[in-house]
Design a protein around this nucleic acid. Structure first.
Lengths: 129, 129, 129, 129
DNA sequence: GTGGTCTAGACCACC
DNA sequence: GTGGTCTAGACCACG
């Protein structure tokens, strides 16, 4: 499992791990029943402190994405995929809505806004990121 | 100048002040040449720490929105309106673009995304906020 | 706020803090809007590591029992009382039910069990703990 | 001897083995003088680590439930039935008492508690588990 | 002063 | 080997 960690982008490292694992699950890159790398191994891979990984994994357990298999490690929970996809979907909708609401408060009319969005949309899906 | 401060919404208070002052300038609620309330008065109005207001005013000076008038206090800079409007515009574009990029990374196609955006757009401009 | 911490009773210290704070809220010992002692102060009081208190407070925030007031500390959330009471109630019912189910599986009949429970009940409410 | 092992329910696997063997003895499913399956066979049956079975058997020997028969393996001890029944009885009483004590500490009065218990009792003995 | 985060190193129970 | 917990000490942003 390859995660890209950026220790200085303002997002807490443990949170980057949480998000990227959820993302990997939503994409099907790791499937229910798969074991995730051990705390120590993941820490080695990412060159961060094992405690930081442990914190991320605890969060993921609390969120129902990972489950402990005694003595074996942590595996992806059976219904994690649906949950992660739904969570992701909801996050995205909220982000978009929030951006639009702010734009409206800023005095833009629906049609101006629609044009801006359309411009960004084509730009994003032409250039890649 | 009336600002709404929420100490528990995750956004730094000084930043809320900065944003709302810029917003007021962009809307024309305060005009170039107007004096803003003194640090102490604003702090009293908002029931926050004067240090916090001072920090916000420093930020606003650094951003060229406020200028010091010796012996008088701080006034809105002559070209602040254009700047604040442009900044706001840019912020909004960035927010929208960022949301769309994340959505794309999450595996959505352009047309699905266009539908979601359109839904949110009509919803936002029907319901108000 | 007085908590009794036992570092060697098998329950994690941070969890003891979480439970006892929830208990205090449920009892009305601390009310919505009250600030809880700062991480550092609580750590001093209980003679434990500030990180351990911080972990407990984070859990309590995630559970919606505490809310951050920027620069002031953490306060009890408005609807925390109802929530803590409900949670406590549910925990107790589950504990009792689980004990009874095990007893049944162990071959006891309803009436034998009823007698045992009644005996324990009177004993508990006579002796104190 | 069929045991149900759940590696992800928070109870140590070796402890699940210990409890279920004792339960089987208390129920008369296995009788004094019967040989229990060898460590290796039991481990194969339950798909767990032989070390884990060994640890459970050691515990059961220490508790006087199993005895070693040279060259034959481990058999159920002559007085294991009485002991297991008594132990089970004591465990159940403790569980019930503990649940009641916690409920009392939580502020419930004897009569409220009596009602809750009665409700759970009838529910448990109507529904099965 | 407040909480949030990270690192380092240690001990534990369990497999 | 696995994860869970605690301690100690450091740095950061914020008020």
């Amino acid at each position: 499992m390859f995660l890209n960690i950026n220790p200085s982008n303002g997002i807490a490292i443990y949170d980057q791990v949480v998000r990227q694992v959820k993302f990997a699950v939503a994409q099907g890159a790791v499937k229910p029943g798969n074991l995730v790398p051990s705390v120590r191994e993941m820490a080695r891979e990412l060159a961060i402190n094992p405690n930081t990984v442990a914190r991320a994994y605890q969060q993921l357990q609390a969120d129902g994405v990972l489950e402990q298999v005694r003595g074996m490690g942590l595996e992806v929970a059976p219904d994690a995929v649906k949950q992660c996809k739904g969570e992701r979907q909801k996050l995205i909708q909220d982000r978009i809505r929030q951006a639009l609401v702010e734009a409206k408060q800023s005095g833009l009319e629906g049609d101006e806004l629609r044009q801006i969005v359309e411009k960004q949309l084509t730009s994003v899906f032409r250039n890649g990121s």
